[in-house]
Simulated assay, not measured.
Amino acid sequence: MEAITDFQKIAIGLMGFGLFFLLFGVLLYFDSVLLAIGNIMFLAGFTSMIGFRRTAHFLFQRQKFRATFFFLGGVSLVLCRWPIIGMLVESYGFVLLFRSFFPAALGFVLSAVNIPFLKAFVSSSTSMV
């Protein structure tokens, strides 16, 4: 397993702040400025994390062209101050881009039930008494 470099730690921070600004922008009734900052920070963090070349290869594959078009089109709509339509288009593109990742993420979340302290919490919260 490779060690995480300082540059990758900064990229994780950028992605985290980007997600925070996106969530905060949605909570504040689709504030276009916060959504734009969140989009830019998330994309900068994602690009910094895996590298420019790998990001371009991931986004511009032939089978992912439609997903990339919707995702980047949604980002550009948010930057043009159409936040609700832009977030809808961007969300559709995000789901199309990362749909192969969702089963792995779901498997990880479902395997969290095997963690001892979470297992006790989940089993106690599902009782109907």
Rank of each mutant, 00 (worst) to 15 (best):
F60Y: 13
L28H: 09
A11V: 00
F98I: 07
F65C: 10
F58L: 14
I84R: 07
L118I: 10
V75G: 00
G86N: 10
T126V: 09
L96T: 01
V95S: 11
A104C: 10
L72P: 01
L118C: 12
D6K: 09
R54F: 09
L43T: 03
V122E: 10
R62F: 11
G13S: 06
T126P: 05
M49E: 05
G45Y: 00
Q63C: 08
R99C: 12
F21L: 07
P83L: 04
S127G: 13
M49D: 06
A44Q: 02
G86H: 11
T126Q: 08
G51V: 14
K119M: 09
K9S: 00
S100H: 15
L118F: 12
T55G: 08
F20H: 00
F58P: 03
G13D: 03
E2V: 12
E90N: 14
F52Q: 11
D6Y: 01
L106M: 14
V78D: 00
A11G: 02
F102S: 14
Y29T: 10
L35G: 06
F108Q: 14
L43N: 01
L34Q: 02
A105W: 10
M41Y: 00
V109M: 13
S111I: 12
F30E: 04
L59E: 04
A112M: 15
L79C: 07
I85A: 12
G74V: 04
L14Y: 04
R62W: 12
F20D: 00
D6V: 01
F70C: 08
T47G: 03
F21H: 02
L106S: 15
L28Y: 07
S76M: 04
S48M: 09
F46H: 09
S48E: 04
V26G: 03
I40P: 04
A105N: 15
F117M: 12
F20N: 02
L34D: 00
K64T: 11
V95C: 13
S91L: 15
R54D: 11
V95A: 13
S127Y: 11
A11Y: 02
L14D: 01
R54W: 07
A44V: 01
A105Y: 09
P83N: 06
K119Q: 14
H57N: 12
L59A: 07
L72M: 13
K9W: 06
Q8R: 07
